[in-house]
Nucleic acid binder design. Structure first.
Lengths: 270, 270
DNA sequence: ATATGTATTCCAATATAATGGAATTAATAC
DNA sequence: GTATTAATTCCATTATATTGGAATACATAT
């Protein structure tokens, strides 16, 4: 929960294979396309011999896969299956599908389930709105917390000090190059916490407004948010409606958490 | 591609942390519910000190997560995001959604996309049929290849010898305890390959019939199958129709592979 | 309370994994 | 063709990760 000792950056320290392995996986995820072992070595700043060794091991495990004849590799299907297993056990992603569908249908706007991924914000699930003007972001992409409405809610269970040590300094620099004052951010976090809601004109573009409402587990920690991303005029016109609908859905989703998941049994396979 | 040296089972050999780590993940996947470090140690037959150490490392990485106050852990959301990344790069799973929906709608039966996961068969995606009598198996569960219709197609690019060394001996023992003759299995594989199709009354129960058609990548290796699982009377009544529809969809899906994936760009996030 | 069994933490020993660097191979320019 | 650069493989070294086993904490029964 507290900060790492600074001396952890000790130079010339060998890295653990396991950590390096997941650095490789994260690198490929961010890159979103296959890479050669050599590129990976450069990308994660690891010795080449290490990168080659680990890539081969991961290939053998099915965690990485060859993608072409040029030696490029990418994330393997084993990861997909492990991810599926996570989903079946984690109530939230299953339960929220219906809520996202409902939100997208009634508002005709894009609805999202957002969560933290490490110290970043990310869209875990997404249902695009029915209106011709559609807005979407890539599911799974890691985005600085301060850039997003949901970010205010997702860190709101932490103390001010925890938040400041949790969010990388660089993430307060907004896409337009300006810097968000951290005290202002903290104030917004507290307001969001108190309101159980946050919305603002998107920082990333100049035509959308983002609504976000918290999904709680165990009543106090915000494990996810439900969001609506709407064109600004729409958002203004339907503000109260969107706000209330979103909060209502998020509350229902929260109340579902913790209940024993229902699982259907295996009967047949083709 | 060839068999491992037998001496690889060398006793008293330390295991690599990376391999052990993925043993832990696979163990949790199969178990489908959280476990304590101690249970994990027993489950994967590893020294307890090792299991504890690796569990802690994986927790720190977000690859495992605490699930309760009793020290139980389960697969973490990081795996979900890695799995998502795999999906966005892998054309097949994206493309097939529409085909599964079409199959499930026109036949009213359960439609599946099936693949190999290591030396096992597994359901990667599934769309349940509209009819009141619904059949489904758990997505992601690992099942012996010989138990399934798709299994015949998924190994059909290998030689007989390769198949026999690829499929674990024990997997020829069927759920009812009887043993499937491996030569008979090979004959079915060859027939399936020649026909570009395989179907049989399910081995796992006595009321369904399974249809399976191959999805090819690069024209020769069957990377997946499309399947229909239907009640036997339905299957008999609509046999030609189901067969042709399934083969048609699988062909279309095959033809889509290899095309450059279209990806939408990031515009906004809530 | 004590006993019994199980789960977890601690620690020292050594087998070995990560590493740097050299050698080799492939790709590209000239 | 040769020169130049990048990518990959090979190998010896040593820091350290895995391990067995002991110690401790926890749980449950008696």
């Amino acid at each position: 929960m507290s900060a790492e000792p600074v001396s952890d950056i000790a130079i010339n320290r060998r890295m653990r294979g396991l950590d390096r392995a997941f650095e490789i996986l994260d690198f490929l995820r961010q890159r979103r396309k296959p890479a050669r072992p050599n590129e990976i070595a450069i990308g994660i700043d690891a010795p080449k011999s290490t990168a080659y060794e680990l890539v081969n091991l991961l290939l053998k495990l099915g965690v990485l896969e060859h993608t072409d004849e040029d030696g490029r590799v990418f994330l393997g299907r084993k990861l997909y299956f492990l991810g599926l297993a996570w989903q079946t056990q984690f109530d939230l992603t299953r339960e929220c599908k219906a809520h996202l569908a409902y939100l997208a249908e009634t508002t005709r706007e894009t609805a999202q389930l957002c969560m933290l991924d490490g110290c970043k914000y990310t869209v875990a699930m997404l249902k695009e709105g029915a209106r011709p003007f559609r807005i979407s972001s890539d599911v799974g992409e890691a985005i600085p917390i301060p850039w997003t409405a949901s970010g205010r809610l997702l860190v709101s269970h932490m103390s001010d000090a925890e938040i400041l040590s949790f969010v990388p300094k660089a993430d307060f620099i907004l896409p337009d190059g300006s810097t968000l004052d951290s005290q202002e951010f903290l104030a917004q976090v507290r307001a969001a916490r108190a309101d159980g809601f946050f919305s603002f004109d998107s920082i990333a573009d100049n035509f959308t407004h983002c609504f976000s409402a918290p999904v709680y587990q165990d009543a106090d920690v915000c494990v996810a948010t439900l969001c609506l991303v709407a064109p600004r005029d729409d958002a203004a016109k339907n503000y109260e409606n969107y706000r209330n609908t979103l909060i209502q859905e998020a509350r229902e989703l929260s109340s579902k958490l913790g209940e024993t998941p229902v699982r259907f049994s295996t009967v047949a396979y083709g």
